[in-house]
Design a protein around this nucleic acid. Structure first.
Lengths: 169, 169
DNA sequence: TAGATTGTTAATCGATTAACAATC
DNA sequence: TAGATTGTTAATCGATTAACAATC
């Protein structure tokens, strides 16, 4: 099953299934049928079973799916089992608000680098959820990304500044 | 052409075409070929022409499309020619920041109502871009929506509060 | 075993693509 | 007219659906 490509339309629905499964687990469900899960996700049970079949055979005929196990398998497929590294560029009000937001960590994102252009800000230490990170110059961006395998960049600079820089690279 | 249903996949791409056309107009283009526009939108020219053909025949063979005219036709199809009414519920920091954000108005949204639960806030007048609107109680929500033909509700209340209310309707 | 539910099949449906006639 | 580009056709490709054999 690992060699086959999963259809785009299926991949697009996996996050929905994952979210609904997490909330099912929160409300105490241990097992769920394709019919129940499909209804909760707003799709048909046939489509849901077809989608899940691309991941593998994780259900039990006559019983349904184990909520924990299926949640994990989808998370694994989506690359949610290890956190995604994020670099935040721009530590104004918005940037500082974002890095202290605990919702990122709980959803599998981890801030691994902070960048700012202002000399007074570079070198300062900022609290990021459970750690403290030193703000660095944009000159170090490439190294930060490489060292931490960062995959996502969040740009929280003023709009006009962003504009300026992209026109004078 | 007005009777036929436009495929979902096409409708999903129209906002992209619209945005790119607006920026082409900003940069002074008067005419654009399907090849140029498609490249700028990240699709193939065949797909673009097929998509546009569902709206009508708005191009000129041998020449291309008039940027202004095509922009307008897509805007009309998307219902962007008259603003969408928005009601904002919750006038804390986030709600107040949103209603004063000029980006909504320039993108075809118009705040037509403000709701808050706090008795001290109800009855106060808030500046909304170019007008001033009186904050009302949630009891008036239905009337506000009906009177202004509001189509979008933005809920900017604390998460736990939102939770509470949905469990005790 | 009997009932329930999955995983898969095959048919249908919708979207994409390449090619080109129409035509400015 | 000659060159360019649209709008449309028909073939291909991918997604959805309903049905049901497999099996817990």
């Amino acid at each position: 099953m690992s060699g086959r490509a999963i259809p785009d339309a299926t991949v697009a629905r996996l996050p929905v299934y994952h979210r609904v499964l997490v909330s099912l687990a929160d409300s105490g469900s241990h097992t769920v049928s394709s019919e129940e899960l499909a209804t909760a996700c707003g799709v048909t049970s046939a489509k849901l079973r077809k989608d899940l079949s691309y991941l593998g055979s994780y259900g039990t005929r006559g019983v349904g799916y184990d909520v924990q196990f299926l949640t994990y398998q989808i998370a694994r497929e989506l690359g949610l089992t290890s956190p995604w590294g994020v670099v935040v560029v721009g530590l104004g009000n918005l940037g500082r608000a974002l890095v202290s937001y605990r919702g990122f960590a709980s959803r599998g994102f981890q801030v691994v680098g902070l960048i700012d252009s202002h000399p007074d800000v570079v070198g300062t230490v900022v609290s990021v959820v459970d750690r403290r990170i030193t703000v660095q110059s944009v000159d170090n961006l490439r190294a930060i990304v490489a060292d931490n395998d960062a995959r996502i960049g969040v740009i929280t600079t003023p709009a006009d500044f962003r504009c300026c820089r992209s026109r004078r690279p």
